[in-house]
Design a binder for these strands. Structure first.
Length: 123
RNA sequence: AAUGCAAGCCGUCUUAUCGCUCCGACUUGUCGGGGAGGAAAGUCCGGGCAACAUUGAGCAUCGUACUUCCUAACAGGAAGGCCCCGACUUGUCGGGGACAGAAAGUGCCACAGAAAACAAACUACUCCGUUCGACUUGUCGAAUGGGGAAAAGGUGAAAAGGUGAGGUAAGAGCUCACCGCCUUUGUGGCGACACGAAGGGCACGGCAAACCUUACGAGUUGAAAGACCAAAUAGGUCCCGAACAUGAGCCGCUCUGCUCAUCCAUUUAUGGAAGUCGGGACGGGUAGGUUGAUUGACCCCGAUUGCGAAGUCGGGGCUAGAUAAAUGAUAAGAUGCUGACUGAAACGUCAGUAACAGAACCCGGCUUACAGGCUUGCAUUUUUU
């Protein structure tokens, strides 16, 4: 499995876990994202991630897809920065009103991953 | 050649690196292959499919509304009819039309106007009478009273058949001709209708996108429908096994043991019920998974029938299948477009940008969005021969 792979198992898709993340998870804002995270209660071999952009800010499906694809790509290429343990549930919620280009999103994701590492160290 | 209109079609491409999803191989982590649209959109119609409901009929409700045809079906399409508008070469072309019924009933018709549906007399017109004035002494003018008259003016979306002639005091379908309308009828056409004939002086204003009437159609809910498999935990039913339970009393106390009592049946010391523990089976069912779900009213080519929409026959093809939801990111180049610069122009250089938009059970339509390009037809202008 390649260093930069990003297959189905790494995506957060169980409804139960998503509910848990949104109700119990901690969060911080880091433009253009709001990031939610929670230690994974199940035994998973990977961090599990979800990306989302709201219908309220982006009415067209094409725009939402574009944002999610760029965000996912940024995570895929930089996820090695993230510490191995503990395994986390992470939600990237796009809160900006306009579509940013890939470079800006990649920078933001990088910062976010570093911050997640710091937060975990404190615990 | 350019511009405009209409119809149809296309609607960025290539390479490299790193990735995603499905399928197939095998050496089980590698290789090979497939991977958004013309609208995937709006969810406005129609169907397939599924579950539930369902004796039949009527009423109500909703929808449709020139005709015939196509179709699984439609509010879609094709061909045609009629009406309206525009153009000119005046009988052709182009465009538009919710285009059934207003002689079944109810309702409405603002403003303006005298009067708006049982018509109506404001001005002007005209006849008769009375009074006054003038003079050429029977005429004219003015005022007033009583009639006639829907022809003229003006208002209005609309003024109660139109035009012309006769007629009359003035007028009027009052009469006549032509046109229109109504009734009856002939011929042609599947039909909507068309072209005629005879009779009738004409009765019947508009609005049905007001209620309504007529004809035809419609069961409800949608893929989060439905079908199947089903972990763990808790609970249910059944079966098997084990221990016999609870209370009191006795041995100093504990364990063990013994005695008595406690639900039902009786053969009176056994069986059953209930309860406890362990194991098993069954069924319901949650998370989750499979299916529905990608071979279809499918696509391409050819033949044939039909004016056409389409139908039939033959051959070939398999063309996304995700599910918190794949089809991407980065770089380079090409292509198109836009802008700037240079220039007579082309070429060129630089910069920017890549239309509208993302499948979600599947089809047939409709509607809306769309940078740019291509093809065909028509019209106009210019150039050349």
């Amino acid at each position: 499995m390649g260093k930069f792979s990003f297959h189905t198992g790494e995506r957060l898709k169980k409804e139960k876990l998503i509910k848990e993340l949104f109700s119990k998870g901690s969060s911080f804002n880091l433009y253009p994202f709001r990031i939610m995270y929670l230690p994974n209660p199940d035994d998973a071999p990977f961090h599990q991630v979800l990306f989302t952009a709201s219908t309220r800010n982006f009415k067209k499906a094409v725009d939402r897809n574009k944002i999610k694809r760029r965000s996912r790509e940024a995570y895929r290429l930089q996820k090695a920065q993230l510490n191995e343990t503990p395994k986390l549930l992470i939600g990237f919620i796009y809160i900006a009103k306009e579509i940013l280009d890939y470079n800006q999103i990649a920078e933001a994701v990088s910062k976010a991953l570093n911050r997640l590492n710091e937060v975990k160290m404190k615990k």
